[in-house]
Design a protein around this nucleic acid. Sequence first.
DNA 1: TTTCGTTCTTGTCATTTGGAAAGAATAATA
DNA 2: TATTATTCTTTCCAAATGACAAGAACGAAA
Lengths: 192, 192
Amino acid sequence: MTSNHFLKNIYSEENFSKAEQEEIISYFKKTTIEKDTFLYKEGQYLDYFYILEKGFVRSYAIDFNGKEITTEFYSNHSIVIDWGSFFLKNPTQEFYQASVETICWKLNFDDFQKLFHSIKNFRENGRKTLTGNYVQMKNKNLLLITENAKERYLHLLKTRPEVIQNASLKHIATYLGITDTSLSRIRKEISL
Amino acid sequence: MTSNHFLKNIYSEENFSKAEQEEIISYFKKTTIEKDTFLYKEGQYLDYFYILEKGFVRSYAIDFNGKEITTEFYSNHSIVIDWGSFFLKNPTQEFYQASVETICWKLNFDDFQKLFHSIKNFRENGRKTLTGNYVQMKNKNLLLITENAKERYLHLLKTRPEVIQNASLKHIATYLGITDTSLSRIRKEISL
DNA sequence: TTTCGTTCTTGTCATTTGGAAAGAATAATA
DNA sequence: TATTATTCTTTCCAAATGACAAGAACGAAA
C-alpha cells in the first residue's frame, strides 16, 4: 500500500487511526470499468459498492413510458451506491453506467458489516456519508419545487460544473426534470 | 414500564432482546406538544429527535420569496428528525409544527450515541430508518419529475390518505409542488 | 347569531413547458 | 472523404400550470 493510496483521501487520518485506515483499505479491491458498461443493473441486489477514483457514472431509472430518467451523476471521490438496495436488500430499480473508463474501489457488504460493527469511526463516517446523500436529495427536491427550469439549470451549472461538462444535454435534461427541447432553449437564452 | 409500552412497537422483540428493548426505551422521555407549537425551528441545532405516538406534524421551509413550502408530513409511528441537523450538526432550515396536540417520545443525541455504539441491533435499526427515509425522498423526487400535478395528488391520496385528511389544501399543494389554485381544480376534476 | 378571519373555489388571462418533427451540427465509422 | 448515426437546435402549436383577484364556504370567537 503506497503512502498516497487514493482511499487515504476518503478514510483520512483526520478521522481514522493509521491501523483503522489500513484495515479498512485492505478490504477494498481496485476495479476498472470500461466506458459504457454497467456497475449495477435494474433488478440486481447490490452486495457491494464503489468509490470513484477517476471517471464519471450516471444512474437512471426507466419510467412508466419507457423513458430514461437520470437520477444521479457521480464523479471523482463519489460513493456509487444504491442505499436502499445495499442496506434494505431490495433489488435496485436503476441502471448505473460508466460514461467513460472509470477507476474505482469496491467493497462488499460482508466486509462492510465487519468494519461497521467493529470500528466506531467507520460507522460514524458511514452515517455521515448517508446523511450527506440524504441532505443532497432533500435539497434537490426543494429546488424542483421552488425553482423553474432555467433556475435549476443555472444552479446545477454553478454547483456541479463537472456534470455539465461530462453529461449529454438529454441526460442533464431528465435529471433536471425538463425536456431536451427546453434545455436547449435555456442554453440559447443564457448565451445571448 | 407497562408491557404494552408504545415504544415496544418501534423497538420490537423481533429485532431486539428484552434487555436491549428496556435499555433503549429507558432513555426516551414522553412529551406532549400542544397544537400549533413547534418541535424545532429554523436555525436551531437539533440535539434530540421525536417518535410520534399520536398526532400530526408538518415541516416546512421558507423559500426565497418568503413562501412556506411543506417538506414533510409526520403521523403516528413516524420519526420526526432533521437528519442533517442531528448527525451533521448543521442548523435546521425548517420549521416543524404540530397541527394537533401530539404525544411523542424524545431521545437526545448523547443518549442516542451511547445506544448506537453499544447495541448492534440499535445501529442496524437506525441505519434502516435513515435508509428508508432516503428511499422515500428519492421516490418523491422521481414522482416530481415523471408525474404531473394530478397524478402526484392521486398518488399521495392512495399512499398517504392520512395526509389528505389532516393537512390543509394549501399545505398539501406546496408539498406536491403546485399552487393551491391548481390543487383545487384537480380536486374538482376528480370529484366529477 | 353576528362578525371576523381563514380556507377554498372559480374565472380570466399570461407564462411556462411539452410534443412532434424537421433541420443543423457534430461525432463515429467505413 | 463519404456515410451514417447521434446529438442538439429550432419551429409551431398545444397543454399544463401559475398569477391575480373576487367571491363563497367554513369555522372560531365574541
